[in-house]
């Protein structure tokens, strides 16, 4: 009575086929990632040591550590976050909570923001050079480079924050408004606390992007080599991504383990930050509130 009819059988075959297809896709995606990591660990691992992390490069960057570059990357990321996070979140709050959603201008701005996220980083670099280095006269400095990174990451911070804000059910807002809460009270008490996870995840993902980019900082504040550490935001700095580029293409006779070590460090930082974001998200999902 419940024997599979021909139609059912066919559906099952199709189902199986798609399962296989998606499975293969996943393997195709995951294998190269694993290979990269294995190769980096295998070739760059030997370079890793305390000295590698905490000393200056020596012998014309063919030996020694990467401390100034590591510190420089941290400088750049932190300063760029100081600019992009408040600005991006504020813009997202405005677009999501205050602007008239159906208004054409709002739509144009939303669309423009999404498109800005796709602008190549070299274009941001040229903008940063013109705007921060030359026009605002910050010179090539941590400040100019960080602001350039901030401009580059801003659209994604806005879009991620906007999406998290929109994910908070509209009924929550209506309930608050009907109780006599102002828009800001509603945002502060109900919308923001519940959008925070998404916003933070978006920000952490941007941190790893800012840490890995070379083009935006190359003309604006990062240099190949500095014999001293930057003392403030108006100094130039070294940076890991640029350092990797330098020692693998510009400097002769670098032992192979060195660039691989730098790459491992960079990828490691990015992976750690991304996993933190994912774990953080899972942790908060576990405490799901509605």
């Amino acid at each position: 009575m419940f024997a599979a009819k021909p139609v059912n059988l066919r559906n099952q075959q199709v189902e199986g086929l798609f399962r296989l297809l998606f499975g293969i896709m996943m393997v195709v995606l995951i294998v190269p990632v694993l290979m990269i990591i294995v190769m980096l660990v295998y070739k760059g691992g030997p370079a890793f040591s305390w000295n590698f992390l905490f000393t200056f490069p020596t012998d014309g960057m063919t030996a020694g550590g990467v401390f100034p570059a590591l510190l420089g990357t941290i400088w750049l990321v932190v300063v760029s976050l100081l600019a992009s996070v408040p600005l991006g979140v504020a813009a997202a709050i405005y677009l999501s909570e205050y602007a008239q959603q159906e208004h054409w201008l709002t739509r144009v701005i939303n669309l423009a923001t999404i498109n800005l996220a796709g602008v190549p980083s070299i274009v941001h670099a040229l903008f940063g050079l013109g705007a921060f280095v030359l026009f605002l006269k910050f010179g090539t400095s941590i400040l100019a480079a960080s602001l350039t990174l901030a401009v580059m990451t801003l659209p994604v911070v806005i879009v991620a924050s906007w999406e998290s804000l929109q994910a908070v059910p509209r009924a929550f807002r209506e309930a608050c408004w009907n109780m006599g809460a102002t828009r800001w009270q509603t945002i502060r008490q109900v919308v923001l606390p519940n959008a925070l996870t998404g916003i933070l995840t978006g920000i952490i993902l941007q941190v790893s992007r800012a840490a890995g980019e070379t083009a935006p900082i190359m003309f604006t504040g990062a240099v190949f080599f500095l014999p001293f550490l930057p003392a403030g935001v108006f100094d130039q700095t070294m940076a890991l991504a640029l350092h990797l580029y330098t020692i693998s293409t510009q400097v002769p006779n670098v032992p192979e383990s060195l660039p691989f070590g730098v790459a491992l460090l960079l990828v490691g930082m990015v992976l750690i930050m991304n996993s933190t974001a994912i774990m953080f998200r899972m942790y908060l999902r576990g405490k799901k509130k509605w």
Binding site: E174, N178, G180, T182, V190, P193, K289
Partner: peptide
């Protein structure tokens, strides 16, 4: 208006327990 709304309580079709 906020004072007006405070004098009028509203209950919606679908229950809204705020996430707190």
């Amino acid at each position: 208006v906020y004072a007006l709304r405070r004098q009028i309580g509203v209950v919606f079709p679908l229950p809204v327990g705020l996430p707190m």
